[in-house]
């Protein structure tokens, strides 16, 4: 920039016609570049991050409490932290908190285990016959795209109000995901790997056990975390529709009786349960991954 300016001003004063003509092309072709540094972001230490996170949470709760106390928000619809805390204590000391938690936990885990196991086996079974896989696939895709929760009322009718219907819904949600993911693993199998096994004189069962299953395990494992969330969703929806126990039923009941503090308590407990189960499954996944070294 400065070069261009000085040569532009300097030219008429100089009275030498050759100079500006020679200086012009270089001046227009190369405007001076601003010196630019690589942007560097400094990482804060962990304790600062955690402190900020806690501060945000605490101020959110405090603001909620103050807003409800001073009538900025309607305390009846939104409830307030102090009321929620009182209800929480009551829920665990007087109510049947542990029955509800146990019920939701049992239906979630049963549905998760059933859906993941059956789904993975179904996915692996497609390795055995391409024809069978081709026949079954459209049905599988139909079942996947179907909003399975829409069928929940029907499931309740067939399986009743008890645990079985919740397990059935949780299973239906997890089964297809496991099947399709495991089948993706089967399809990713290198045909040369099978060739190696057959060249060693292997039977189909040996190829399945020693190659297909260990190869597909990472796919089976990769859906565990997704499935635990889906199973919980299935169990809660089942409880929403018809149930005598469970955190889903507690939320629905509290909502119907305008006990908003209890809604928050049940949601809080449910979230805690979800986090605990997610953590447990993540831990299981790490152990399994270490075991197979993929």
């Amino acid at each position: 920039m400065t070069m261009q300016e000085t040569s532009g001003i300097g030219a008429p004063l100089d009275l030498a016609p050759a100079q500006p003509a020679a200086a012009q092309p270089t001046a227009t072709a190369l405007p001076a570049k601003p010196a630019r540094r690589l942007p560097v972001q400094k990482d804060w230490p962990l304790w600062v991050i955690v402190t900020v996170q806690i501060a945000i949470l605490v101020s959110f709760i405090a603001l909620w409490q103050v807003a409800a106390d001073y009538g900025w928000i309607d305390g009846f619809f939104w409830s307030k932290p102090s009321a929620i805390y009182a209800t929480l204590i009551k829920f665990f000391t007087e109510g049947d908190a542990w029955v509800d938690i146990g019920f939701t936990f049992r239906s979630t885990i049963s549905g998760f285990l059933l859906g993941t196991t059956i789904g993975s086996l179904l996915g692996l079974s497609f390795w055995w016959s391409r024809n069978y896989a081709a026949i079954v696939q459209p049905y599988l895709i139909c079942f996947e795209s179907l909003p399975k929760l829409a069928l929940a009322p029907l499931v309740i009718l067939v399986f009743g109000m008890g645990l079985a219907s919740k397990v059935a819904i949780a299973t239906a949600l997890t089964l297809v995901v496991s099947t399709l993911t495991t089948y993706a693993g089967v399809k990713a199998l290198d045909p040369d790997g099978e060739k190696l096994f057959y060249s060693l004189g292997a039977s189909r069962w040996q190829v399945f056990r020693k190659l297909v299953v260990p190869f597909c395990l990472p796919w089976v494992i990769s859906v565990l975390r997704v499935n635990i969330g889906l199973a919980l969703t299935g169990a809660i929806v089942g409880e929403f529709i018809a149930s005598q126990h469970g955190l889903g039923r507690a939320i629905l009941y509290a909502g119907e009786t305008y006990d908003i503090a209890l809604v928050w308590v049940a949601v809080l407990v449910l979230s805690t349960l979800a986090i605990v189960m997610y953590g447990a499954v993540s831990w299981l996944e790490r152990i399994l991954r270490k075991g197979i070294r993929q």
Binding site: D192, G193, K195, A202, Q294
Partner: peptide, 17 residues
């Protein structure tokens, strides 16, 4: 008939697990 000769394919095909 399979399993009568040893056959090493281009890839080493070692099982990673």
């Amino acid at each position: 008939t399979i399993g009568r000769v040893g056959y090493m394919l281009q890839k080493d095909l070692l099982l990673p697990w």
